[in-house]
Design a protein around this nucleic acid. Structure first.
Lengths: 180, 180
DNA sequence: ATTAAATGCTATGGGGCCTAATTATATGGA
DNA sequence: TCCATATAATTAGGCCCCATAGCATTTAAT
């Protein structure tokens, strides 16, 4: 999580500018602003979800399962597919599911055709949890975006997609480093 | 961390719309897009920093110390102040500092006037670590933002501030929930 | 049949974060 | 002066998320 209560201002960067030719103050400030707002949002919703008894990670799993079951009439997903969609390793997903199963929010069934596989599905209690969260959850999101006019949303979405595309292109370059 | 490889599309929300009056599809999709891009950015830079031997948390501490020392001629900060600025509890900061001190990136001195206090400062090695990271780090950030024209950056910054302000206003409302 | 690949799991460990309790120090009345 | 209270830093213990490595089982490919 990124967090810096008081972001650096232009003055903080000034002494660094002569030293680093690659330093573009406006880029860095925008970058930090973005991360700060994102972190704040994430933290606020994490806290909110925690008050409802689920972590972000668990919530994502529940959402993925709900979507799958809505799309495919209750078919569920395998742990590896869940791991892929959630961007974690299979081992991590096993751990997440362990907790979710302990709390009876999901069930695991063995796959008919492929005996290596497991099928994960929401329990009724799991569905209820989500439906208990949704009204307030959606309302908060709507409220958060309420200040943005339609055209502002459009523009923000376009800009976000632009950054997203750029990231996808240079993802390896970005993440790799000294020892990467 | 928020991550969902494939974001929900309009169709995924359609069956929910009649059920939840508070659900504004465009808000939620924008919200998810924002979180996804933010998470991707954060993850990429986290990986990058890890390759340089520091975690996000540690990096923030080092940045806060550098800024303080540049602003106030090497005066350093107390652990409490660091915790406040980094948005963590003092106990968490103690843990972070323990690791940083073990790696000889920071030093702890006792405060002259108030013997409860400790003053934390970067060691030369700590400064060197940052200066070793910066050129490449700034270059990657500049590259990431390179596709955005000046006016786009301006607009993005304005929109981010708008969301940020909205969040600050309704922070308690946002984070609080069922049991909050 | 043999090898390769996929699946799910366990074990282990680290990072980050928390709460609660402890110790030391400071401060502001009564 | 003494006590209650507040603040500072730390320790202890624990949870969650996440990763890597290794393993057994099963399936697929040659």
């Amino acid at each position: 999580m990124f967090y810096m209560k008081e972001l650096p201002n232009e003055e903080d960067f000034r002494p660094l500018v002569p030293e680093y030719s690659s330093l573009d103050t406006s880029s860095v400030m925008l970058f930090y602003l973005f991360l700060q707002v994102g972190s704040d949002m994430l933290t606020a919703f994490e806290t909110y979800l925690a008050n409802h008894g689920v972590s972000q990670g668990r919530f994502i799993v529940l959402l993925l399962l709900l979507r799958s079951q809505m799309r495919n009439n209750g078919s569920g997903l395998s742990p590896s597919e869940l791991a892929r969609q959630a961007g974690v390793t299979r081992a991590t997903m096993t751990g997440l599911m362990k907790g979710l199963q302990r709390d009876e929010l999901i069930e695991r069934f063995s796959h008919d055709g492929d005996r290596r596989k497991v099928i994960v599905r929401l329990t009724p209690k799991g569905k209820e949890s989500l439906h208990a969260i949704f009204p307030d959850y959606y309302s908060r999101i709507a409220d958060l975006m309420n200040d943005l006019e339609d055209d502002e949303r459009e523009r923000l979405s376009k800009l976000l997609h632009k950054v997203k595309n750029k990231m996808n292109l240079s993802k390896q370059a970005l993440a790799s480093g000294a020892r990467g």
